[in-house]
Design a protein around this nucleic acid. Structure first.
Lengths: 200, 200
DNA sequence: TTGACACCATACTAGTGAGTATGGTAATAT
DNA sequence: ATATTACCATACTCACTAGTATGGTGTCAA
């Protein structure tokens, strides 16, 4: 059967597949999406999907990479216009809270990762590495704040960051079953709570 | 085929099935356990399983109930010998931290719940109700502490409890991919961090 | 021109697992 | 004695899906 090449440069088909896989995964979770759906979304069939990825796990790992890259890109874009260290920290936390509370796709994807992590070493390692970069990023933000304040108590910055990140993950989960958290004022209070961790 | 009635009183078969389902779920997750395995573990076949439970979802919900009841029972047993409010709070937090960090079965089960929650209303409602009781329980512990200290600042007790519970959930997830958290001293520090939330 | 290769479609295998249909047995009731 | 019911086993159906086998087409190099 003839097929007009419609999907742009064929070099990017693996990227297209990764994007489509991600879009379906964040909507329905890994187990509820099959490879035919992903291929169809990309405008091809399973046969060609298997030319680009050797199995479903590779696609899942690729969609993880997509998630990580998107996160970094969003943060960069968000902080680009800000130079004040305290503003940068505050903005980052506010953005993360919004992602956890409002963005259902984010919730679906990460919870799916957490479940898969329990039995899949590759996924676990992948997420551990991402978490590590996020932690270092927050530590950098905090160092900048402390330095601007000429503060010397850098003691438990690392532990505080871990505590805050843990609280964010828990927040994400709680937002999954308590719906009254969506209003703006509530989210502001939550951001304040998380910020207060560093005031102790 | 003759079958000698070996499994005790047949009245308790639904309980046996629930227990076996739970034991398999915490080990492999919901999707990696099929009904034949559960029935086999209980010493029966799928036919009789379907006499006690009308589908897999009912078994999952039943295993959730088992989880909730076990949690309450463990806490009761833990706090029975303690009367000092501060001791009771500290002990409860320490126990919860241990459950999150050490008990892999606990991690597997709850993360599976969180994923399922995103698409399953019944599971979500079930967990939301459990979370509510846990929160009220912690609030009760804190009220007792504040009362013993003749403190009047009951202001953000509720918010602090939520923050701490969120941090615990996040801790559980992080313990799933960072293994250096298992040693006793590290867990003590974590407990202290969580307790410090109430000192602010 | 021809062969090689990148890329894609079609059609299939094979395994799995939820749910059902049906029949058997032991106890209890009438 | 017989009918009913609670409980369980056997044996299926049916849908779904990861992965494979195979062949086609366009492009590019030699």
């Amino acid at each position: 059967m003839k097929k007009t090449q419609v999907s742009g440069s064929p070099v990017h088909m693996s990227q297209t597949l990764r994007q489509c896989a991600f879009d379906l995964f964040v909507e329905h979770g890994f187990d509820n999406v099959n490879l035919d759906q992903i291929a169809a979304a990309a405008g091809v069939t399973k046969g060609s999907l298997y030319w680009h990825y050797k199995n479903k796990q590779e696609l899942i790992l690729a969609s993880c990479q997509h998630y990580y890259q998107t996160w970094h890109a969003n943060i960069q874009k968000l902080l680009a216009p800000l130079s004040n260290p305290h503003e940068r920290l505050k903005k980052t936390i506010a953005y993360s809270v919004d992602s956890c509370v409002i963005d259902k796709r984010n919730r679906v994807f990460t919870t799916a990762i957490f479940t898969l992590m329990q039995e899949n070493d590759a996924v676990r390692d992948s997420w551990a590495q991402f978490y590590s970069t996020v932690r270092e990023f927050y530590i950098g933000l905090l160092y900048a704040v402390k330095h601007a304040e000429s503060s010397t108590s850098m003691d438990h910055v690392r532990r505080d960051v871990d505590l805050m990140l843990e609280a964010m993950e828990g927040l994400k989960i709680r937002a999954g079953f308590e719906k009254q958290m969506v209003d703006q004022s509530e989210r502001l209070v939550i951001s304040e709570s998380l910020l207060s961790i560093f005031k102790g």
